[in-house]
Nucleic acid binder design. Structure first.
Length: 269
DNA sequence: CCACGCTCCTGCGCGC
DNA sequence: TGCGCGCAGGAGCGTG
């Protein structure tokens, strides 16, 4: 499931081979993604891909007349194919550039492909996003202020994209483990020191995943390669009933806001 | 403003 | 071996 590191790895993987190339055709095989893929994408024919940016988990493909916004949802992946094989059942969209096809595969269709022709902050999906987790704007002082008066659990708060973007369910559990903070702690009660600790943990967790993902980047150029996902040694996520890697206590799981949450009762308070 | 629960969808793992 | 069920999850959106 693409979280922010995977999306950033994807961004780099598609930017390198496609930037500067001209799009000559858009093929939509299934427009029924999270929102209908708009018909106006066909007007992209003839335009050059100027850059590929990222905001939160949205990929932003820049063209002269606007931005193609893509979200990979739960199961989306993008591949650059120089010799594209016959599309599979879940290959919903091709952006055909000269010399390579950018193909979107998304079995669960939680993803999105949209078009926007104004500044980023005028798009409803992008307008109210919090800071990027790896930016200097995301720091302990900011987080402390953002959490004041929030009575939800800290885990839910850091997964709220108006607080900080890019922290999904896996890295929420991992970051809280590293920070030694129990996921159920009320967000507004975290001390400034613990906010700073949590910010550091989030940055470390995401950066480590990013580094690990970067090593498989070259796979994007291969017709039969796996997308650039990576394995990570999780401390907490998915380890319910197993011994904590640090202290040996049994890792627990609980449901918070319909999401599995993993934590160590001895390491996290 | 804040919090919560619902929703979309398919693949997978499990029990029988 | 096969079938059917329940779960997993990002994040927008409607409701209270």
């Amino acid at each position: 499931m693409p979280e922010l590191p995977e999306v950033e790895v994807t961004r780099r993987g598609i930017a390198a081979p496609l930037q500067g190339r001209t799009l000559h055709r858009v093929v939509v095989r299934n427009a029924a993604l999270r929102w209908p893929v708009p018909d106006c994408l066909h007007t992209l024919a003839g335009q050059t891909l100027l850059a590929v940016d990222r905001r939160a988990k949205y990929l932003l493909l820049r063209f002269a007349h606007g931005t193609l916004i893509m979200h990979l949802g739960m199961s989306g992946s993008l591949r650059v194919l120089e010799r594209p094989p016959e599309p599979g059942k879940h290959d919903h969209l091709d952006l055909c550039f000269d010399g390579a096809v950018l193909r979107l595969r998304d079995p669960r269709r939680f993803g999105a492909v949209l078009w926007h022709d104004g500044p980023d902050d005028t798009h409803p999906l992008l307008a109210h996003l919090g800071p990027e987790p790896l930016s200097t704007q995301f720091n302990g002082t900011y987080l402390k202020a953002a959490l004041i008066a929030r009575r939800v659990a800290i885990k839910q708060a850091i997964m709220d994209a108006t607080v900080v973007v890019g922290v999904g369910n896996i890295y929420a559990s991992e970051s809280l483990f590293r920070a030694g903070i129990r996921p159920s702690q009320p967000a507004g009660r975290l001390s400034a020191a613990r906010c700073t600790r949590l910010v550091t943990a989030i940055k470390d967790t995401l950066q480590e995943a990013l580094r690990a993902g970067g090593s498989t980047l070259r796979d994007f150029a291969q017709a039969d390669g796996e997308p650039g996902y990576f394995q990570q040694q999780y401390f907490a996520y998915g380890r319910a009933g197993q011994p904590c890697r640090i202290c040996g206590a049994t890792v627990r799981v609980l449901r918070m806001a319909q999401r599995s949450t993993f934590w160590c009762p001895d390491c996290q308070h």
